[in-house]
Protein backbone atom coordinates (compact mmCIF):
# COMPACT_ATOMS: atom_id res chain seq x y z
CA UNK A 1 0.00 0.00 0.00
CA UNK A 2 1.24 3.42 -0.78
CA UNK A 3 -0.59 6.66 -0.99
CA UNK A 4 -0.06 10.31 -0.59
CA UNK A 5 -0.06 13.76 -1.94
CA UNK A 6 2.31 14.44 -4.73
CA UNK A 7 5.76 15.86 -4.09
CA UNK A 8 7.65 16.76 -7.26
CA UNK A 9 10.64 14.51 -7.82
CA UNK A 10 14.12 15.39 -8.91
CA UNK A 11 14.74 12.74 -11.52
CA UNK A 12 16.25 14.32 -14.59
CA UNK A 13 15.35 11.55 -16.97
CA UNK A 14 13.50 12.72 -20.07
CA UNK A 15 9.76 12.54 -19.90
CA UNK A 16 9.53 10.83 -23.24
CA UNK A 17 10.15 7.11 -23.29
CA UNK A 18 12.64 6.06 -25.92
CA UNK A 19 13.49 2.41 -26.14
CA UNK A 20 15.88 1.31 -23.46
CA UNK A 21 19.17 0.14 -25.02
CA UNK A 22 18.91 -3.01 -22.94
CA UNK A 23 15.39 -3.71 -24.15
CA UNK A 24 16.04 -5.42 -27.42
CA UNK A 25 13.61 -6.45 -30.10
CA UNK A 26 14.28 -9.15 -32.64
CA UNK A 27 17.99 -9.76 -32.25
CA UNK A 28 20.62 -12.41 -32.45
CA UNK A 29 19.91 -13.56 -28.91
CA UNK A 30 16.30 -14.23 -29.85
CA UNK A 31 14.74 -16.81 -27.53
CA UNK A 32 11.56 -18.35 -28.88
CA UNK A 33 10.44 -19.56 -25.44
CA UNK A 34 10.63 -15.98 -24.21
CA UNK A 35 8.80 -14.75 -27.24
CA UNK A 36 5.99 -17.22 -26.75
CA UNK A 37 5.51 -16.34 -23.08
CA UNK A 38 5.70 -12.66 -23.88
CA UNK A 39 3.39 -12.36 -26.85
CA UNK A 40 1.63 -15.64 -27.73
CA UNK A 41 0.85 -17.42 -24.44
CA UNK A 42 -1.95 -15.09 -23.48
CA UNK A 43 -4.17 -16.63 -26.18
CA UNK A 44 -2.61 -20.05 -26.80
CA UNK A 45 -2.81 -21.48 -23.32
CA UNK A 46 -0.28 -23.63 -21.52
CA UNK A 47 2.42 -22.63 -23.96
CA UNK A 48 0.27 -23.66 -26.94
CA UNK A 49 -0.68 -27.06 -25.51
CA UNK A 50 -4.31 -26.07 -24.88
CA UNK A 51 -6.93 -23.98 -26.65
CA UNK A 52 -7.76 -20.64 -25.06
CA UNK A 53 -8.62 -17.43 -26.84
CA UNK A 54 -6.72 -19.03 -29.73
CA UNK A 55 -6.54 -22.66 -30.81
CA UNK A 56 -4.34 -25.41 -29.41
CA UNK A 57 -1.09 -25.36 -31.39
CA UNK A 58 0.39 -28.71 -30.36
CA UNK A 59 -0.30 -31.39 -33.00
CA UNK A 60 -1.61 -28.79 -35.46
CA UNK A 61 -2.45 -30.18 -38.86
CA UNK A 62 -1.34 -26.98 -40.61
CA UNK A 63 1.74 -27.11 -42.83
CA UNK A 64 4.72 -24.94 -41.92
CA UNK A 65 3.86 -22.44 -44.65
CA UNK A 66 0.30 -22.18 -43.39
CA UNK A 67 1.45 -21.52 -39.84
CA UNK A 68 3.84 -18.82 -41.04
CA UNK A 69 1.11 -17.23 -43.17
CA UNK A 70 -1.26 -17.14 -40.19
CA UNK A 71 1.34 -15.52 -37.95
CA UNK A 72 2.23 -12.98 -40.63
CA UNK A 73 -1.31 -12.06 -41.62
CA UNK A 74 -3.28 -12.80 -38.46
CA UNK A 75 -7.04 -13.20 -38.55
CA UNK A 76 -9.29 -10.14 -38.11
CA UNK A 77 -10.73 -9.95 -34.63
CA UNK A 78 -8.98 -13.12 -33.54
CA UNK A 79 -5.24 -12.86 -34.04
CA UNK A 80 -3.00 -9.87 -34.69
CA UNK A 81 -0.81 -9.80 -37.79
CA UNK A 82 2.84 -10.18 -36.81
CA UNK A 83 4.22 -9.84 -40.34
CA UNK A 84 6.12 -6.68 -39.57
CA UNK A 85 7.12 -7.76 -36.07
CA UNK A 86 9.06 -10.94 -36.75
CA UNK A 87 11.55 -11.81 -39.48
CA UNK A 88 11.79 -15.08 -41.42
CA UNK A 89 14.30 -16.58 -39.02
CA UNK A 90 12.06 -15.86 -36.06
CA UNK A 91 8.98 -17.19 -37.82
CA UNK A 92 10.82 -20.44 -38.50
CA UNK A 93 11.80 -20.60 -34.83
CA UNK A 94 8.15 -20.21 -33.82
CA UNK A 95 7.19 -23.08 -36.15
CA UNK A 96 9.99 -25.14 -34.56
CA UNK A 97 8.61 -24.31 -31.10
CA UNK A 98 5.11 -25.44 -32.12
CA UNK A 99 6.41 -28.65 -33.71
CA UNK A 100 8.37 -29.41 -30.56
CA UNK A 101 5.43 -29.03 -28.15
CA UNK A 102 4.98 -32.10 -25.92
CA UNK A 103 1.80 -32.71 -23.92
Amino acid sequence: MQSGRHTPGTNDNPSTAPASPSATGPASDFDVNQLFASTCGWCHLKGGREAGKGPKLADTQLADGEIIARIRNGKPGQMPAFGSAFNDEQLKAIVGYIRGLKP
Partner: peptide, 20 residues
Amino acid sequence: VKTTPILEPMAQLNIGANFN
Protein backbone atom coordinates in the same frame (compact mmCIF):
# COMPACT_ATOMS: atom_id res chain seq x y z
CA VAL B 1 9.03 -17.04 -17.93
CA LYS B 2 11.72 -14.36 -17.93
CA THR B 3 11.08 -12.16 -20.94
CA THR B 4 12.61 -9.19 -22.70
CA PRO B 5 10.28 -6.46 -23.97
CA ILE B 6 9.94 -6.32 -27.75
CA LEU B 7 10.06 -2.71 -28.87
CA GLU B 8 11.26 -2.92 -32.47
CA PRO B 9 10.00 -2.51 -35.09
CA MET B 10 6.84 -2.01 -33.09
CA ALA B 11 5.96 -2.82 -29.47
CA GLN B 12 4.52 -6.23 -28.66
CA LEU B 13 2.52 -7.67 -25.81
CA ASN B 14 4.70 -8.41 -22.78
CA ILE B 15 2.94 -11.00 -20.62
CA GLY B 16 5.79 -13.09 -19.16
CA ALA B 17 4.00 -16.38 -18.59
CA ASN B 18 2.22 -19.34 -20.08
CA PHE B 19 -0.97 -20.21 -18.27
CA ASN B 20 -4.38 -21.83 -18.32
